[in-house]
């Protein structure tokens, strides 16, 4: 609830953060949009939730939300995890926004580790929760050095790491947080999304990334070139489990493998639960759909 001054009826500000903090985050967001893939430092605030719950994403959402928004939160594709439910409730309470589980009804979607299957539109913003924003961190622990590497476009070590994968496994083994190059300039960590999602990083919506503990914000504007790093003899392969969804029959979605009985029986289901439910509502059926199984 908001009163006439816009202050919430409780003792916190609209969308929790104070106006000065929001201005600081908003300035960082605009610079992030202007320099796609570059990590803008910002002064992260303590949020009333643990860091693992995506305080960076929450602060970005708080700086973006208006009372007219419809907000959706997904955690690994699902709307109903504790994390997703808590963040949704947080903004229902502090920003008085409508919430939804339907991707197409949302104006802002905060996500942990997935990009929705349904293509996003120009009227949407996707906010990512990022644990480790620096793609070069595992090569070089010192921030001053990674910053220099980005400044000089010194990305050779990154390619060496990927090529070591090929030497060891015969293919690039990195399957999450697969590094990308944005608009031909900055190497960026797309957050721990499966590499299956990487091709979707070129989209119509604005993508904003927030890392709370590491105090970084970065962005991909709409229709920006995003290329997954690869080699001529080992091109990028956004592969997924070679099976259709057992509930909706989709053969083009990212699947979770679920153990369904004590005998070790397994099924594959869409990780994007809203997308899967939508397909089932349209009459699509999979191997283990209630009707098909009868």
């Amino acid at each position: 609830m908001t009163d006439q001054t816009g202050a919430t009826t409780s003792d916190y500000n609209f969308a929790y953060l104070d106006e000065q903090t929001k201005r600081m985050i908003r300035r960082a967001l605009l610079k992030a949009v202007a320099i796609p893939g570059y990590q803008v430092p910002f002064a992260s605030r303590e949020m009333p939730m643990p860091y693992g719950w995506g305080t960076g994403g929450v602060q970005v959402s708080a700086a973006c939300l208006t009372p007219d928004d419809t907000f959706k939160v997904i955690d690994q594709g699902a709307d109903d995890t504790t994390n997703a439910v808590s963040i949704r409730k947080f903004f229902e309470k502090t920003a008085d926004v409508e919430t939804t589980e339907h991707t197409q009804d949302a104006t802002i979607i905060q996500t942990r580790h997935r990009i929705p299957e349904a293509p996003l539109t120009e009227d949407q913003i996707l906010v990512y929760q990022v644990p480790i924003p620096e793609p070069l961190r595992f090569l070089e622990p010192r921030e001053t050095e990674t910053r220099k590497m980005h400044a000089l476009e010194e990305y050779g070590l990154m390619h060496v790491k990927l090529y070591e994968d090929i030497a060891r496994h015969g293919h690039i083994a990195t399957s999450y947080a697969y590094p990308v190059k944005v608009e031909g300039r900055y190497v960026m960590d797309p957050s721990p999304i499966p590499k299956f999602d990487n091709p979707k990083l070129e989209m119509a919506a604005i993508q904003l990334f927030g890392a709370g503990r590491e105090q970084r914000i970065y962005a991909i504007p709409p229709y920006t070139q995003v290329v997954s790093l690869d080699f001529e003899d080992h091109p990028f392969d956004p592969s997924k489990a070679d099976a259709p969804c057992d509930l909706c029959g989709a053969d083009h979605t990212y699947l979770d493998e679920v153990i369904i009985d004590d005998a070790g029986g397994r099924m594959f289901v869409c990780s994007d639960t809203d997308y899967c439910a939508g397909r089932q509502a349209q009459g699509h059926r999979g191997r283990l759909s209630p009707e098909a199984a009868e």
């Binding site: 816009g6 500000n13 973006c64 208006t66 009372p67």
Partner: peptide, 9 residues
Amino acid sequence: PPVQSSHAF
């Protein structure tokens, strides 16, 4: 301020 600045941003 909180609401108008959010729309403006």
